[in-house]
């Protein structure tokens, strides 16, 4: 298993390299002078010249990339043009907030989707299954900006159950923190939830046709036991893959939701930096998010052997 992880880790390196190149090129290969892109059209020639020097823009592109990569690997992402703060500080402050938002949303999504998916598969075409399917279809058609706005309207403006916007740090006041994050997390969770329910239902229906389920019934095991202890785990293999891929959608959703609920995560930082044309911050955010996404999928891959013992021993028995 360690060897498998090692091999996958080696494959990770070129992917991360190419991701970094792409992020770098985004800013540097686009039409126009990057310095003017960064400073805006109204910049003075002197300022442009200074920035070109600072970013080594007169060097050949591969040199610039290696230089940038070297700095990035040392945590030096440049300075924000807005407040002259190091970009790394801003990223470090905002990143955990997004992470918390995403983790809570996934916890909600899994807690709700697993029982719903199991029940839908156990009694397909029952009213509960139809309701779950209808709900999933609706959620898949309701993007986070639509849901977010509606959620704010219903829960915050109309019922005053949750605050509409704002954020208190987890370390400052955990209770308020959760209260502030609940509505955004729920909004973010709904989309994933819909995907998970549909997927788990389909997988579970297939699993329930397996001989070993009939065998468990022939042993006289109770239905609930069979569903949870025999059918659930084999039905989650593709769920893990999809959950990994879903992180991409989730990040996009988090950007929007942070914007709607004014949560100071990496998404809000990115969007605000876009508005203020603070391109080095944007570049850093894109890089950090893309790398994070690649890493999440890498760890999801590693989770397979935990779920499926067959992949654990495949190497030793072959």
């Amino acid at each position: 298993m360690a060897r498998l992880a090692g091999r996958k880790f080696l494959l990770l390196i070129p992917v991360l390299l190419i991701v970094s190149i792409a992020t770098f090129l985004l800013l540097n290969l686009l039409p126009g002078d990057p310095a003017i892109n960064i400073l805006g059209l109204g910049a003075t020639p002197a300022a442009v010249h200074q920035l070109r020097q600072q970013l080594h823009l007169d060097d050949p592109i591969y040199l610039r990339y290696t230089h940038w990569l070297w700095q990035t690997l040392h945590g030096q992402l440049g300075e924000s043009y807005l407040n002259k703060e190091p970009v790394s500080t801003a990223v470090r402050q905002h990143f955990p907030v997004t992470l918390e938002l995403m983790v809570i949303s996934q916890v909600i999504a899994i807690i709700v989707s697993v029982p719903l998916g199991i029940w839908s598969a156990y009694r397909p075409n029952s009213w509960a299954d139809r309701a779950a399917t209808g709900f999933s279809f609706a959620m898949l058609a309701a993007p986070p900006y639509m849901l977010g706005v509606l959620m704010v309207f219903v829960f915050a403006v109309h019922w005053h159950v949750f605050p509409a916007t704002g954020y208190v740090g987890l370390t400052q006041n955990p209770f308020e923190n959760i209260r502030d994050l609940f509505l955004p997390s729920l909004t973010l969770a709904l989309g994933s939830l819909a995907v998970y329910v549909r997927l788990l239902r389909a997988e579970m229906i297939a699993t329930l046709q397996e001989d070993y389920i009939t065998m468990a019934r022939a042993k006289g095991m109770p239905t609930g036991f069979i569903l949870l202890r025999h059918a659930l785990r084999p039905s989650t293999f593709s769920l893990v893959t999809v959950a990994g891929l879903n992180v991409g959608t989730l990040i996009g959703g988090a950007f929007i939701i942070e914007y709607i609920f004014a949560i100071p995560g990496i998404g809000l930082l990115t969007v605000n930096s876009i508005y203020s044309r603070d391109y080095l911050v944007v570049q850093a955010c894109v890089l950090i998010v893309a790398v994070g996404f690649v890493l999440v999928n890498f760890f999801m891959d590693l989770m397979y052997p935990l779920l499926d013992p067959r992949t654990r021993h495949a190497r030793s028995s072959a």
Binding site: I18, V19, L245, G248, G252, F255, V286, A290
Partner: peptide, 12 residues
């Protein structure tokens, strides 16, 4: 596909 879609679109 390694780039989160919305983030890439936003960047472009």
């Amino acid at each position: 596909l390694a780039f989160p879609a919305l983030v890439l679109a936003l960047a472009i």
